[in-house]
Computed example of a mutant assay.
Amino acid sequence: MVQFDPQFKLPSSNELACSDDTPVDNENQNFIPNFLLFLLEFVWPTRQDWFWGVDMAIYHTTGASPFVPVVPDGFLSLSVEKRKQGGSRASYVVWEEGNVVPALTLEVVSRTPGGEYQEKMATYARLGVLYYVIYNPDFWQRDAHQPLEIYRLIEGEYQLQLSEPFWMPEIGLGIGRAITETGGLKREVLSWFNPQGARYLTPEEQLKRYQEPFGDAF
Rank of each mutant, 00 (worst) to 15 (best):
T46H: 00
T61W: 10
S19G: 14
Q48W: 07
V54Y: 03
L127I: 15
N30F: 11
R89Y: 01
K186E: 13
G156P: 00
V109M: 04
N99S: 08
P11L: 09
D143V: 02
E164N: 01
K82L: 04
P213Y: 02
Y59V: 11
S88D: 15
N99E: 05
S12D: 06
M168T: 04
L160G: 13
P137H: 11
E181T: 10
D55S: 06
F31V: 15
G215N: 07
C18P: 14
I175A: 03
L104W: 12
R142D: 15
R199M: 05
T182D: 06
T180S: 10
L106V: 13
M56Y: 12
G184H: 03
Q7E: 10
V2I: 15
F38T: 08
F67P: 10
P69Y: 09
R83T: 07
G183S: 07
Q146S: 09
I175R: 11
P6L: 07
D20E: 09
P195C: 00
V100R: 14
T182G: 02
Q85M: 11
I150M: 12
T182E: 07
W192D: 00
P45Y: 01
D216E: 09
T112K: 05
H145T: 15
L37D: 01
N26H: 12
D143F: 00
Y117W: 13
H145Y: 15
A178S: 15
L148M: 08
L127G: 14
Q7D: 12
I154R: 13
E149G: 08
S77Q: 13
L10N: 08
E149W: 06
D21Y: 10
E116K: 03
N30K: 12
Q146K: 09
P23M: 06
E164F: 02
Q118T: 15
A57H: 09
A125S: 09
G172Y: 00
A57E: 08
Y200C: 04
W140P: 04
A64K: 13
Y124E: 02
S65N: 12
P113A: 09
V70G: 03
A103E: 09
T46P: 00
F8I: 13
P23W: 07
V129F: 00
R142I: 11
T62K: 04
Y151H: 11
K120D: 04
V101T: 11
E205C: 01
G176W: 00
Y124D: 01
K208T: 15
G87F: 03
T112N: 07
Q29C: 06
L153A: 03
Y92L: 10
V68T: 14
R83Y: 07
I58R: 05
L162K: 10
L76Y: 11
F51A: 00
Q161Y: 07
P169D: 07
I154P: 06
A144V: 14
H145S: 15
E15P: 05
S91Y: 09
L185H: 10
M1N: 11
Y200R: 03
P213M: 03
E181D: 12
R83S: 04
R209T: 05
V80A: 01
L36V: 10
Q146P: 00
T22W: 02
V80M: 03
L78G: 02
R47I: 00
G183V: 08
L130C: 08
Y151G: 08
P45H: 03
A90L: 13
E119W: 12
S110C: 04
V108K: 02
G87V: 03
L78Q: 04
F218K: 14
V129H: 00
A144W: 12
F4C: 02
W52N: 01
E164C: 01
D216L: 06
A103S: 13
S163R: 07
E204N: 10
Q48D: 12
